[in-house]
Design a protein around this nucleic acid. Sequence first.
DNA 1: ATTGACCTTTACGTTGCGTAAAGGTTTATG
DNA 2: CATAAACCTTTACGCAACGTAAAGGTCAAT
Lengths: 254, 254
Amino acid sequence: MEYTVNKLASMSGVSGRTLRYYDQIGLLKPARINSSGYRIYGQQEVDLLQQILFYRELEVSLEDIMEIINQPNFDRSKALKNHYEHLKQKRARLDKIMATVEKTIASMEGGTPMQDIEKFEGFKEKLIEENEQKYGKEIREKYGDETVEASNAKLRGMSQEDYDAMTKLGEEIMVLLEKAYHTGDPASAEAQLVAEKHKEWLMYSWSTYSKEAHAGLADMYVADERFTAYYDKAVKGGTKFLRDAIRIYLGLEE
Amino acid sequence: MEYTVNKLASMSGVSGRTLRYYDQIGLLKPARINSSGYRIYGQQEVDLLQQILFYRELEVSLEDIMEIINQPNFDRSKALKNHYEHLKQKRARLDKIMATVEKTIASMEGGTPMQDIEKFEGFKEKLIEENEQKYGKEIREKYGDETVEASNAKLRGMSQEDYDAMTKLGEEIMVLLEKAYHTGDPASAEAQLVAEKHKEWLMYSWSTYSKEAHAGLADMYVADERFTAYYDKAVKGGTKFLRDAIRIYLGLEE
DNA sequence: ATTGACCTTTACGTTGCGTAAAGGTTTATG
DNA sequence: CATAAACCTTTACGCAACGTAAAGGTCAAT
């Protein structure tokens, strides 16, 4: 039995375009081309197409399918295990997304305005990243992954009330920072108050607090333009001023 | 505070290209363009970008995000619920795929050659579809969804042994069909044997058997070119011959 | 004045086809 | 037997959300 494109197409449930495309990329060539230029497929091609569609169903890319079917002694088992890991990651990601969407819907039904939710989520992610930047590089080795993960977990699981309090504290810090900045002295009472509030603010997210971690974070604020931009919203140069105040507050300088 | 593209980019963790693209599609326009043609973003745009990225994280398409952020009284809750259903379907599909991959790997480790597995899966799907075509249209209403689902489940859960037996029987039918065809008579003993074997073959997949369903399936074979092509592999015209034999076997004709 | 670090626009590549458009071939019908 | 209907062909743009040059202005510093 021989089939033209659309015959094979309707037999197998794919489109004619798909078969021409498979021919084009060399995935499935017709058995021969007749005198009028028509593609003619035979039984072998039907079987091969079955194989291809099997892998395609599993979301294997056409490129990978080519490897699988073209190399006779290809390690299919290894390839599939590899593919399985991909799928697993994909599902884990999907699960996380779905959880967030669920939580978001719940918050909305609870009356929280959408804007706040977005900010909340966006901010939490930023904080986690902040943590990651600080801890990730130095502290992960020093204190182990558990400290970091615990901190991230604390953040992710933070209640709306805590978040509100934290946000308020954060805004307060910005106001106080601007005032303190105008004293011109990071050792001033005003500046030291900001440093203390900043520590308080940190406690919302950090599972454990240490002076060196706090000082390190302050340094990172100055080094990382994202944080510089954030604290400079209060006053230009505010980030550096904050760092100095913190270092004095921690007794690292005078 | 004002930011150029790459400033905002490194602040928010996206690329400059992304911001230019968002500008291009009208998702996020800069606050203004300076005299040199540079894009300048302000605080409002930073906040808006935060919002956009929040939804992007949830795998909402940029097109949908535009709707969400551009229409002030847009029903975000409804949109998110809708989106959640999408994600649910996606995960269900992923789960099915992963189950198949797992089963495939297990079979391979059990020593089953890959070819057989592929054929097995491909064939099962074909059978399920076959069931669906017949049952889906007529029987779902008559006998209810349960009959159909039971049948599909029976197929999907079929053991390798049953499958092998079924395959063998299927091949036997093809051979017998060709022989019977040459008698020229669908009422001949040979043809009636084919019809009986075909019923036997069906029993592997059907949860319940009825004459009318069998006759209906035979009609569908003739009507659907995929099945016509399949049975005509034995002999050209074999499908029609098979249908006639079955109808006589069932006592619907003489 | 030149270098280097920015910025700009234009445009092709990615994945797996869908969907015309323009034109030759085969089959069915009047 | 002519012509229409039903096939087949190739070429090529479109899709989502950017990545990645390429070619060329602008700005700050040396």
